[in-house]
Simulated assay, not measured.
Amino acid sequence: MNAFAQLFSQYDIPGAFLVNIELTLWSALFSTILGVMLLLMRISPISSLRRIARGYVELFKNMPLTIIMVFMVLGVYAQLKLSFSTTFATNFFWLAITGLSLYTAAFVCESLRSGINTVPIGQAEAARALGLNFWQAATQVILPQAIRGSVAPLGNTFIALLKNSTVAAAASVATETSTMMSEMIEYHADLIVPIFLTFAFGYVILIIPFGALTTYLSNKLAVRR
């Protein structure tokens, strides 16, 4: 037991969780922006935009996240020489955020699209009758209602994003939880079970309140007809 307690002084476990939280928050922000753009393209009257958005969503929905993360390092960084910073740790951190954002945006788009299905078609017709163009109708009438109807799927998407942030190890982010857990197990093989339970319960503690908040907001913002 003393050996396990010493791990908390030897390793910055809360700091590792903080890195994953930072990865999640930044990725949630960028994936939401990209996801909304993809959604507007998918419902656009321009067929070419719809095809591009649909192709993007289908591509990233069906591609393993690990492959994307490895490509960010071996393809984007090593081959294309794209760098966000001269500091290795910062550079790989933002490469991981880029990969997570590109991947999650496809699911954000689909979550919002499910919310659009809850908006009566009469809303769009009324917007057109008032003389609103597509952009105005989408952003001022349809999208606000769609967001209210997609709180639950969006919440599930961001919960999955938090768990997916552990894949950042594939992008050489050396300070996040999965990397730290692997290192701890490698040097303290006799403590595998308590180490595993520590990180597992850490994510449970993070995710349960977020899930409860999602449920509350979903019920609070639900459109009642």
Rank of each mutant, 00 (worst) to 15 (best):
N164T: 09
L143I: 11
G155C: 01
A137D: 04
V119W: 06
Q145H: 09
G131W: 05
S165K: 00
P120F: 08
R148W: 04
A126C: 08
N164A: 09
A146M: 05
G122I: 12
G131K: 06
G155F: 03
L162P: 14
A124T: 14
L143G: 03
I121M: 13
F158G: 03
N117V: 15
V151K: 01
T166I: 08
F134K: 00
P144Q: 12
A137M: 14
P144V: 05
A126S: 11
L162R: 09
N133C: 04
T157L: 06
L130N: 15
L130S: 15
R148G: 01
N164Q: 04
L161G: 00
S114P: 00
G115K: 03
N133M: 09
F134T: 02
G149M: 06
Q140L: 15
T118D: 06
I121Q: 14
V141P: 00
T166L: 02
S150N: 03
N156E: 11
A137K: 02
P153S: 11
L154I: 00
Q136W: 11
I159Q: 07
G122A: 08
P144F: 01
L154R: 00
Q136T: 14
V141I: 11
A152T: 14
L162E: 10
I147C: 03
G131I: 04
A124D: 11
Q145N: 07
K163C: 04
I142F: 01
G149C: 03
A138Q: 12
A160T: 13
